[in-house]
């Protein structure tokens, strides 16, 4: 296959970037999108040019590192896959492919197609956990959990933290990411214990980091490589409203949860 690539090149976070056009030929339709990028980079290196920097690691669709915005879609035109799972047979011979980094204020570009997604870690740090220490835990089967709830929780937990939801959303909103984590825990008895504190802390951190608002366009769900449903966003809204309306403050001093 012969292709024309228009790729965003940006030397570092401080510099201004621009699109550069590359021609590439003899690409096997069986190669993956990232293998096509490898081939491009190999040729750039041999010409003494700086190869295109992009995040990638597991190359099997689970680590969430790869993050290209391809022809108007995060992770490219196919549904339910990451960029590393995208194969060139999906494209037409002679096609022009525009490759951009994720665009969102909380995801600044570090170089070329690499963006900084530390904001996601910060949201998890704000409350995306169950506050238990290692050890001293009752038997795993001591609390039965309805299979349906466990399965719904797993649906939400499948999030790989790639940021495609933010990239796809016209508002650069992180609601699906946050909702997935909130839902995973809200559906399990272990997570319910601090569900109210969790949803408030995580939403506050999300807003604080400068993500946009959810206007229920559903683009996140359509582009999520793990097909996480926006019903999780509704669940988070529910959790958030009831936490805000119903949360009680205990009197007296409370200790830290160390």
């Amino acid at each position: 296959m012969d292709l024309t690539l228009k790729i965003w090149r940006q030397k570092n976070a401080a510099s201004k970037g621009k699109f550069v056009t590359y021609k590439i030929s003899d690409i096997s339709p069986n190669s993956s999108f990232l293998e096509m990028m490898d081939i491009l980079n190999e040729s750039l290196v041999l010409c003494g040019e700086d190869p295109v920097a992009f995040d990638h690691d597991c190359r099997e669709g689970i680590c969430g590192a790869c993050s290209m915005y391809i022809n108007g879609h995060p992770h490219g035109p196919d549904k339910a896959i990451t960029t590393c799972q995208l194969h060139m047979r999906r494209f037409k011979d002679g096609e022009t492919i525009v490759i951009e980094p994720w665009r969102a204020r909380p995801f600044p570009v570090l170089k070329d197609l690499i963006v900084d997604r530390t904001a996601f870690d910060k949201i998890i740090q704000a409350g995306g956990y169950v506050s238990v220490n290692t050890g001293g835990i009752p038997d795993a089967n001591s609390i039965p959990i309805p299979k349906v709830k466990a399965d719904l929780s797993m649906d939400a937990a499948a999030c790989i933290g790639c940021g495609a939801c933010v990239a796809a959303c016209k508002n650069a909103s992180a609601m699906l990411f946050v909702a997935a984590k909130v839902s995973q825990f809200a559906l399990l008895p272990q997570g319910r214990v601090e569900a109210s504190e969790r949803v408030q802390a995580m939403v506050a951190e999300m807003d604080n980091l400068g993500f946009g608002n959810c206007t229920n366009t559903g683009a996140c769900e359509a582009e999520c490589p793990k097909e996480i449903s926006i019903s999780n966003i509704a669940r988070m809204n529910r959790e958030f409203l009831s936490a805000k309306l119903g949360a009680q403050k205990p009197s007296g001093r409370t200790g830290s949860d160390a």
Binding site: Y129, V130, V132, T134, G135, I137, P138, D139, A140, N141, P144, I145, P146, K147, A150, D151, S153, M154, A157, Q184, F185, L188, Q190, G191
Partner: peptide, 21 residues
């Protein structure tokens, strides 16, 4: 103990209809 720990952390392991792992 690992299984106990992970369940307490909210790891959604596969379950039977009776609610057990």
């Amino acid at each position: 103990a690992i299984i106990d720990q992970c369940v307490a952390q909210g790891v959604p392991f596969a379950r039977e209809y009776g609610g057990l792992l």
